[in-house]
Design a protein around this nucleic acid. Structure first.
Length: 526
RNA sequence: GGAAGUGUAGCUCAGUUGGUUAGAGCAUCCGACUUUUAAUCGGAUGGUCCUGGGUUCGAGUCCCAGCACUUCCA
């Protein structure tokens, strides 16, 4: 692939029509002229975005010395050439700037070169005229290739079409690119290449940088929402001796000095609850968890989640908090509460819709979920394996198949069957129902919250009860004696909330795959 | 784990029923052009058709196996 240099690159007589060889040749040419192809300090520069914001400082000075404001060329009514004809002769005069960035496009027109220079605040056009920059710099400009990082010093102005442009006076080679850039219209579309070479994806594909900058904004926003409400961020261990807090298969590793098996964490829950016992009344952790499962557009083996615990709250408090976190994040990235995801309009205006597990089940299947015979016969019709399975497990498989995909949301599904929620407090008036909700958007589970179980004896009992029909790795029922001991020291009644950050970012940035919001998703080696 | 799809130049893609020397655009190189903006115009270079077998006079194309990716399902 691209990492093997072409055979022409080392030959004495390189084939200059080979793009790689041509770049190597120009590199050598730069060195020969005493120009460092890898650049030097240039941090006293102006960002392209700042330059664009200074467009108002560019004036038109007529031959008579009169200074005119320039018209707004963004307006379709303005023909800038005509405006100049009407007001000329004269020239545009703006402040001197220093910019740096990657050459995205280049157009030569005789003894002129136009560049589109990109930094992470956007693009700006560069005008390089042979007469204007002088022979030496013009020869340097001829050694520039698409993708090179260059610096330009010059005056801000406008071209005849009105475009804001840096009229170069001095050029700086900052770094040569030795690889060939992707196709300039289509970009790099091969999904595997984009993920393997995220650097090139970020540098050359539109929208990729914005998605990841939005991801950062969203995560910052989540933290600030919680910090503003007095929550304390902590860091729990990522190496666990007992993988707990979720139903998932862990990654296993080994500690040499202690000669013991360790597992990567699959959830944050049990350690955060220990901290609540210790008196951290509002606590959260935002971090990576690892689940040894298959890959899909919604699953990556390592992903980012946040878990939040609030003493003296319950799942109702967590619903309000969930809405607050999402709406604050939407405010930060802009674009309003009505957004498109996968072609559907999602309305995030709070409060989000709420419906119970039982009523959604009945609506989708026409069957009352407490009617065991009807549930069993439906399961048979759906060809769900019912052997040795607890009725609630079967019920939940039907729910996943018939209800979840159709939940466009945002909708809180509340009040789950208690037997599938071993870490959750039961409803006081109905011990069959757990105080739990899941937030669904476009059929995707985004958040999961409980009124947390804090009865140590009941917790111990639930750890011992393996639900019939569940594989061990699918069960949350893994005895953690220290956790039960912690509960005996009294954990306050509390609400707990977990949010899948990657999925939240997917929905808020309209990304179809979790791999579009994870910089370096898991891939097989090349 | 199962099914379907994809894999051709550095990148994006065509490639007919199996038939001459595998094409285009971008990029690259040469030439023209001092206000272009997906610049334009003229010319040139560039291929392990994913890998390995097989069928055939002849395979990018058909068959088998494998690899990678994508999507759907479990």
């Amino acid at each position: 692939m691209a990492d093997s240099p072409s055979p022409n690159t080392n030959a004495d007589n390189p084939d200059l029509t080979d793009p790689h060889a041509a770049r190597r040749h120009k590199l050598a040419e730069l060195v020969q002229r005493g120009i460092d192809p890898w650049g030097q300090r240039f941090d006293d520069r102006d960002l392209n975005g700042e330059c664009r914001a200074r467009i108002g400082e560019v004036k038109f000075v007529t031959k008579e010395g009169e200074t005119l404001e320039l018209p707004d060329v963004e307006s379709p009514d303005v023909d800038y050439r005509q405006w100049k004809t009407d007001n000329g002769p004269g020239e545009e005069v703006g402040p001197t700037v220093r910019v740096a960035g990657r050459i995205m496009l280049a157009r030569t027109a005789g003894k002129l070169i136009f560049l589109n220079l990109r930094d992470w605040t956007g693009d700006i056009q560069i005008f390089i005229g042979k007469k204007q920059v002088g022979e030496e710099d013009f020869e340097l400009a001829k050694l520039f290739d698409l993708g090179d990082l260059v610096g330009v010093e010059g005056r801000l102005g406008r071209t005849n079409t009105g475009e804001l442009t840096v009229f170069a006076e001095k050029l700086f080679m900052l770094t040569k690119m030795l690889e060939v850039p992707p196709e300039k219209h289509a970009g790099m579309t091969n999904i595997e290449l984009r993920q393997r070479m995220r650097y090139a994806d970020l540098a050359f594909n539109d929208g990729v940088m914005q998605t990841f900058l939005d991801r950062t904004k969203i995560i910052k926003s989540v933290r600030s929402t919680l910090d503003d409400r007095g929550f304390c961020e902590v860091e729990g261990p990522t190496l666990h001796t007992i993988p707990g807090g979720a139903a998932a298969r862990p990654f296993e590793t080994h500690h040499n000095a202690l000669d013991m098996k360790l597992t990567m964490r699959i959830a944050l829950e049990l350690h955060l609850k220990r901290l609540m016992v210790g008196g951290m009344e509002r606590v959260y952790e935002l971090g990576r968890v690892y689940r040894n499962e298959g890959l899909s557009p919604r699953h990556n083996p390592e992903f980012t989640m946040i878990e939040i615990y609030q003493a003296y709250g319950n799942y109702e408090s967590m619903m309000e908090l969930t809405e607050r976190i999402i709406c604050d994040a939407l405010d930060k990235i802009g674009g309003g509460y009505k957004r498109e995801y996968n072609g559907q309009e999602i309305d995030f205006t709070p409060p989000f819709q709420r419906a119970t597990y039982a009523e959604l089940f009945e609506k989708a299947t026409g069957i009352n979920p407490t009617d065991e015979d009807a549930v069993m016969s439906l399961a048979a019709k759906l060809q769900i394996d019912t052997n040795d399975k607890h009725p609630d497990v079967i019920r939940n498989e039907i729910f996943e198949e018939k209800v979840e995909d159709s939940l466009q949301g945002p909708i809180f599904v509340i009040d789950y069957p208690a037997s599938i929620c071993p870490l959750t407090k039961r409803k006081r008036d109905n011990p069959e129902i757990a105080e739990r909700f899941e937030l669904f958007i476009c059929g995707m589970e985004l958040a999961n919250a409980y009124t947390e179980l804090n009865d140590p004896d009941l917790q111990e009992e639930l750890f011992k009860t393996q639900l019939a029909g569940l594989e061990e790795e699918d069960s949350m029922a893994k005895m953690d004696h220290d956790f039960v001991r912690a509960l005996r020291y009294a954990m306050p009644p509390a609400g707990g909330l977990g949010i899948g950050i990657d999925r939240l970012v997917m929905v808020l940035t309209n990304s179809k795959s979790i791999r579009d919001v994870i910089l370096f998703p898991v891939l097989r080696p090349e």
